[in-house]
């Protein structure tokens, strides 16, 4: 099976670079603008996915499979991170009865 990659059909690498940049920036703006801690965690997942998309695009562009293994490991770490993050969030909700991140300012000097 010898399929042509999408880059041989005339799509440039810049398209995927810009697409994942915009996706990453959407994640950053989400972290900055939202106050719900769960949504903030979701926006971090969005940023991780933007990086994953860029890694897969480069993997296809250069014809090397190593980047896809890295994407696999990023998914592993993201799953572990989401589990621990959400359990910390449940703990915080149990104590403060809220997931509003602006009330967690005890460390503020």
């Amino acid at each position: 099976m010898l399929l042509a990659t999408i880059f041989e059909s005339g799509l440039s690498m810049e398209y995927y670079l810009i697409l994942s940049s915009i996706l990453f920036v959407i994640g950053v703006v989400g972290v900055l603008v939202r106050k719900n801690a769960i949504i903030v965690l979701m926006c971090i997942e969005l940023m991780l996915n933007a990086v994953n998309l860029l890694l897969v695009a480069f993997s296809t562009y250069f014809g090397k499979a190593d980047a896809q293994i890295f994407v696999f490991f990023i998914m592993v770490v993201a799953a572990a991170e989401a589990t621990v993050g959400l359990s910390i969030l449940v703990l915080i909700y149990r104590n403060a009865r809220s997931v509003d991140i602006s009330i967690f300012n005890k460390l503020k000097g």
Partner: peptide
């Protein structure tokens, strides 16, 4: 420059 060696199977389970 992009890879000239087209390996469309690289994303399949066997290769990965």
């Amino acid at each position: 420059d992009p890879s000239t060696v087209v390996n469309a199977d690289q994303g399949l389970v066997k290769n990965l």
